[in-house]
Nucleic acid binder design. Sequence first.
DNA 1: TCAATAGTTTAGAACAGTTATAAACAAGAA
DNA 2: TTCTTGTTTATAACTGTTCTAAACTATTGA
Lengths: 139, 139
Amino acid sequence: MIPIARPFARIAERLRGVGLRPTRQRLSLGRILFAKGDRHVTAEMLHDEAQADGVRVSLATVYNTLNQFTAAGLLREVAVDTGRSYFDTNTSRHHHFYDHRGRELTDIPAEGLRVQGLPRPPEGLAIDRIDVVVRLKKA
Amino acid sequence: MIPIARPFARIAERLRGVGLRPTRQRLSLGRILFAKGDRHVTAEMLHDEAQADGVRVSLATVYNTLNQFTAAGLLREVAVDTGRSYFDTNTSRHHHFYDHRGRELTDIPAEGLRVQGLPRPPEGLAIDRIDVVVRLKKA
DNA sequence: TCAATAGTTTAGAACAGTTATAAACAAGAA
DNA sequence: TTCTTGTTTATAACTGTTCTAAACTATTGA
Ligand SMILES: [Mn+2]
Ligand SMILES: [Mn+2]
Ligand SMILES: [Zn+2]
Ligand SMILES: [Zn+2]
């Protein structure tokens, strides 16, 4: 009943809920990812942060975990730059500012943003998702 | 005066115009890229197509050429999938449908499409470009 | 409580896409 | 032509990611 004292309890439930065993590695990575609000991380960023936190986990496991969390709907992947995958802890519909210099993503809430005048998709295909990326430059 | 008979003439001019020597490789790649309307190609696609056309050119040169053409404003890069760069012969403002299965890009004209309600960019930064990617799935 | 089982982690190899290196080569100027 | 500088190329190197297979661990149910 004191969630602060059991930081893994909720995460363990979420993992079991999607059929993943709550291992030490997944719990630690889950805590890093979900403890402090919305985040956009690469595998290497998460691995470095885990190391800094004293969590021993291999890079392969970081990749496995990010991909499993994404498949389970706990994360979503954002494609803004080729050669580097970003994983977003905010899985709700929203968009992004992208600062290509600083390689930094910032959320744009879906509410308030409207994309109007889209043509019909090609025959046999339907819209899965609309991603708006606002690329930034120095003012 | 007969452009069909001198398919390289216009391309040679464009290359000189951006400070690139009109070499056999650049002229051939330029012809493949710009001869048949708007295209979205990867380096490997362009290399394969060149080979099929009997154009002898290394993959390194294809990469160099795509990057040089992009820097010169003759092409633009589209980031829809990590791990694979697409180059777009349509450098005007427009957007894309992306079929993730078939790895195929289709243009969405900028005219008619409106993105409204964007928040102000973070302090010190300005909007460089807005990219709308409409991801498709089977209907 | 303790196997047995199936899922998980890991080091390291492998892989894909791309860029760097440096030597051979070709375009353009003189 | 010659000279200079830009270009091409094979190949090595590099980055991000996935694969492999052996060691390990969470879970189950006897
Ligand atoms: Mn980039
Ligand atoms: Mn993909
Ligand atoms: Zn986000
Ligand atoms: Zn396009």
